[in-house]
Design a protein around this nucleic acid. Structure first.
Length: 110
DNA sequence: TGATTGACCAACT
DNA sequence: CAGTTGGCCAATC
């Protein structure tokens, strides 16, 4: 059973807590968890999110530039952009428009 | 069981 | 200014 009380579980927890219509970054999550250097692990957790029992809105998690670096892992299509635009977030050229405006920092608002 | 990688970020050279 | 490296944890080879 892949239920672990570690960095991974916390990542999933925080990502699921992201408000509707908001986005955050890998580094922000890692920073909130206290391990700023583990930003790569957040992305790894997203990769394994498919095996996670609960749904993880990984489309709300992008890199520090607001760029949809992991969109290729979303079924291999522009699904990530569509999901973001469906929540009121404008995406162009694999980047979020007005990223700062939609940015949600767990350490700041949670 | 040791070495490598993985959707990143920041600092250093 | 651009390329390299260090860092963190867990999973895969």
């Amino acid at each position: 059973m892949p239920q672990r009380n570690t960095f991974f579980s916390k990542v999933y927890e925080v990502v699921r807590l992201i408000p509707h219509g908001r986005v955050t970054s890998y580094g922000a999550i890692a920073n909130y968890l206290g391990t700023a250097g583990s930003s790569r692990m957040v992305g790894w957790a997203m990769n394994k999110a498919h095996s996670h029992p609960k749904p993880v809105p990984a489309h709300r998690v992008v890199n520090r530039n607001g760029m949809l670096t992991g969109k290729h892992h979303f079924g291999g299509s522009n699904l990530m952009e569509e999901l973001l635009q469906s929540e009121g977030i404008n995406v162009e050229n694999d980047a979020i428009i007005e990223f700062e405006k939609h940015f949600w920092d767990p350490a700041l608002e949670l």
